[in-house]
């Protein structure tokens, strides 16, 4: 179901932190990740921090609010990897 390794790895990370199954997450990858208003930013922060460690990237603070859906999280990681010239290797 995944087109590349980044999609798979980001889904694994988001699934673990949001306590959802990977299958369910992938099916609803364009849906809003968090229901609890106010907790969004902390869960997004955890997801971003884990992805930063995994891919050795640095996500600017103002971009963390972009992590509202799984699709957005994957796009953000790919953008950061592309900027660092590491996207091809990660795919």
């Amino acid at each position: 179901m995944y087109a590349d390794n980044v999609e798979r790895a980001v889904t694994e990370v988001v699934a673990e932190i949001s306590e959802k199954s990977e299958e369910e997450l992938w099916e609803q990858r364009d849906s809003h990740l968090f229901e609890e208003v106010g907790l969004d930013s902390l869960l997004a922060l955890e997801i971003v921090a884990t992805l930063e460690r995994k891919y050795r990237i640095e996500v600017p603070e103002e971009r963390i609010v972009d992590v509202t859906t799984l699709t957005a999280a994957i796009a953000l990681v790919k953008e950061m990897l592309r900027e660092n010239g590491k996207l091809e290797a990660a795919l």
């Binding site: 930013s41 922060l45 971003v48 921090a49 930063e52 603070e61």
Partner: peptide
């Protein structure tokens, strides 16, 4: 600190 932003931290 694992991650610090202006409003939160891990």
């Amino acid at each position: 600190a694992e991650k610090v932003i202006s409003t939160a931290a891990i």
